[in-house]
Nucleic acid binder design. Structure first.
Lengths: 182, 182
DNA sequence: TTGACATACTCACTTTATTGAGTATATAGT
DNA sequence: ACTATATACTCAATAAAGTGAGTATGTCAA
């Protein structure tokens, strides 16, 4: 499974607390690998057992103490191993399409509303991505090395969200046309 | 969860055996909701317990007997209920992007090969979709009602696979350019 | 007659994921 | 004083998914 890899991947950026990781899962890695806080802490415990990461308690005065986590040599090797193995395209699982598949069972208006709702969500995500693009990756000279790969993940997000958006428009258009026709 | 919904959705097309459903999961619904045979049979048992579907044993002479499954009123209501509830955009989980995220840990060539591998896979899937499009949805007059919604799911697949393909090209191009430059 | 497929379904084990709390400390606003 | 929010982490129960193998029947072709 890949939650462990996603966690180690964020840790390979630099050490941080479990809490920080869960924050990052709501921001960067989270865009392509969703996980809850509980899942992350559980996985962190496992990874620590396996020696993939080490922890050091940091005393803080103005807030709760934290455990600073850092990836170990074992952890890095484990990650590298995984990255180097050829992988398959991740299987897709999408509720909305299942709904459409059996959409004839409900009123067309319900499907239409659902499509519009999704359009709004994809538009919002796309906007977020575009904002990150203009703020973080504005200067092409800046993102060499690590940044370039990060930029590619962003471009992927932009491309896919855009495809979703285009499709939503298309679908809404088709559904509305029929609504009037009937 | 949605495996139960995906199963009921395929059954809403007409009754068939568990085996048939698992075949469909490798062909149509499977494009947007992957599941193994074992998962399907387990879920079918659960759905039967809940009264969402009923079974009738069909004796066959030239092959093993089968249990013909059909969706019940309860099952249909359950499906309709689920479809009618507004849902969130399905969270994404993609290995490749996690790999890119920590891609600086391995040789660039490994990433490049992985990207090329994915390009091939997405190209193949896109070809499959295009073929279905030309064979099943060739005539616009034919797919009214149910077929129209089905066509939308296909269009979604085509749009997304295309976006993936475009992105793969872009990514490969960028990685190769840097390869030469360094 | 052996071996590869296709149909049809089952069992058992393990890993992951989800849900919903609960604990504790500190900051900042009303 | 009360409330909300942010940091930081833990526990426990259940649901769902993934894994790998196994059973049984019959077709067809080399």
């Amino acid at each position: 499974m890949s939650l462990s890899h996603a966690i180690l991947a964020t840790l390979s950026n630099g050490c941080c607390s479990g809490y920080d990781i869960s924050k990052q899962f709501a921001g960067s890695v989270g865009f392509f690998w969703y996980a809850t806080q509980q899942q992350i802490y559980r996985e962190l415990a496992k990874l620590e057992d396996q020696g993939c990461l080490s922890a050091e308690v940091i005393r803080q005065e103005n807030r709760p103490d934290k455990r600073m986590l850092s990836i170990t040599v074992v952890g890095t090797a484990y990650l590298q191993e995984w990255i180097s193995q050829p992988g398959k395209v991740s299987p897709m699982k999408d509720d909305l399409l299942v709904k459409l598949f059996a959409g004839q069972l409900v009123d067309r208006q319900i499907i239409l509303n659902e499509l519009k709702h999704h359009r709004t969500q994809h538009q919002a995500t796309l906007n977020t991505y575009r904002e990150i693009e203009s703020q973080v990756f504005a200067d092409p000279a800046q993102y060499n090395g690590v940044g370039e790969l990060r930029y590619l993940t962003l471009l992927n997000g932009i491309g896919l969200e855009n495809a979703w958006l285009v499709w939503c428009e298309q679908a809404i258009c088709l559904m509305e046309k029929d609504e009037i026709a009937s």
